[in-house]
Simulated scan of single mutants.
Amino acid sequence: MRTFSITSKSLILGLMAMMNIVFAQSYPDRPIVLVVPNPPGGLVDTSARLLSEPLTRVIGQPVVVDNKPGASGNTAYQYVAKAKPDGYTLLISYSGYHVGNPALMDKLPWDPIKDYSPIALLTVSTNVIAVHPSVPVNNLKEFISYAKANPGKLNYASQGNGSVSHIGTEMFKQTTGVDMVHVPYKGSGPAIQDVLAGQVQVFISTPPSLMQHIQSGKLKGLAVTGKNRHPGMPNVPTTAEAGLPSFQLESWVGLFAPAGTPAPVVAKLTESVKKSLALPEVKERADAAGVELRYQNPAATEALVKKELPYWNKVIKSANITLD
């Protein structure tokens, strides 16, 4: 009886494996949907649209973008987590949600590891540490020294409570030991207005928000927080070049499928994404949008998530960051 049970189990597993292979061979035979947790525009939506057109050509079926903003990203994340794991409904995931929301929200309706199968890392976007010209510093070292000598006298802007600019600046504070006062805004537009007016002295945000003001001299760009200098601000050093290698802040965008998606389907998607991002015209479009392409395979993408989850959680809890 036991032998029959084991044999039956092995037969079932073998049949399931064969079905997955057959399914993968015919996949895809209809359009693929990229669910985006943000409205049109911005890093996440831009990354989705950078991928959709070339992936359509590479994989042989239409790849369409479906923006589902709402509930700090949870609308899209929950939708994909509950979707059929067949490779036709995929999530364009944003680091601010994927590793930030688990620490910001007590009862999250999705799990960042268990509910998704990583397909690939797509893009990253650096941030820039910018200050108003009234701050008497010329580089990052001078700024840190000045801030330490004047605790609580500098105000920093963010795009809102729990935003990447908020969490990232708290990371900077914890890394350097400086003390600055948080002033939250509803988006980067009003934040930049007050920084340009000198009512708030510091803003750590993405290049599209700050680049033109740094180029014009209305703000001082002290450092880029990524691995490389930004092509639009070649004279602004990285934090490592500026003497602070321990601080990096990059926002990333990755592609994920619902957990349980057959491994052959994930493999086909991964290879198709890799080919799509390697096309020269995709890099040209990414450069024009100020986005850096950075493909990573599923294992490396999963490792990135697992590495950042405890780090973001520690920063958020230590700084007592909430969405309210």
Results as ranks from 00 to 15, higher is better:
Met1Val: 07
Thr3Pro: 00
Met19Gly: 08
Val22Thr: 09
Phe23Thr: 13
Pro31Thr: 12
Val35Lys: 00
Val35Met: 07
Val36Phe: 00
Ala48Glu: 01
Leu51Phe: 06
Pro54Met: 02
Thr56Gly: 05
Arg57Phe: 07
Val58Ile: 10
Gln61Asn: 08
Val63Cys: 06
Ala76Asp: 05
Ala83Val: 00
Lys84Leu: 14
Thr89Leu: 07
Leu91Asn: 04
Leu91Ile: 03
Val99Ala: 10
Pro102Ala: 01
Pro109His: 12
Asp111Thr: 04
Asp111Lys: 14
Ser117Cys: 06
Pro118Arg: 08
Ala120Trp: 13
Ala120Tyr: 11
Ile144Met: 09
Lys148His: 09
Ala149Leu: 14
Lys153Gln: 12
Lys153Glu: 14
Gly160Arg: 06
Gly162Glu: 12
Ser165Leu: 05
Thr176Phe: 12
Asp179Gln: 15
Gln193Ser: 11
Leu196Ile: 00
Val200Ser: 06
Leu219Glu: 12
Leu219Asp: 03
Lys220Leu: 15
Arg229Trp: 06
His230Gly: 07
Val236Ser: 13
Thr239Arg: 08
Gly243Val: 01
Ser246Leu: 14
Phe247Ser: 01
Thr261Asn: 15
Pro264Arg: 05
Thr270Asp: 13
Glu271Asn: 14
Arg285Asn: 10
Arg285Val: 11
Arg294Pro: 01
Gln296Ala: 15
Ala300Ile: 08
Glu302Arg: 13
Tyr311Leu: 13
Ile316Met: 04
Ile321Phe: 10
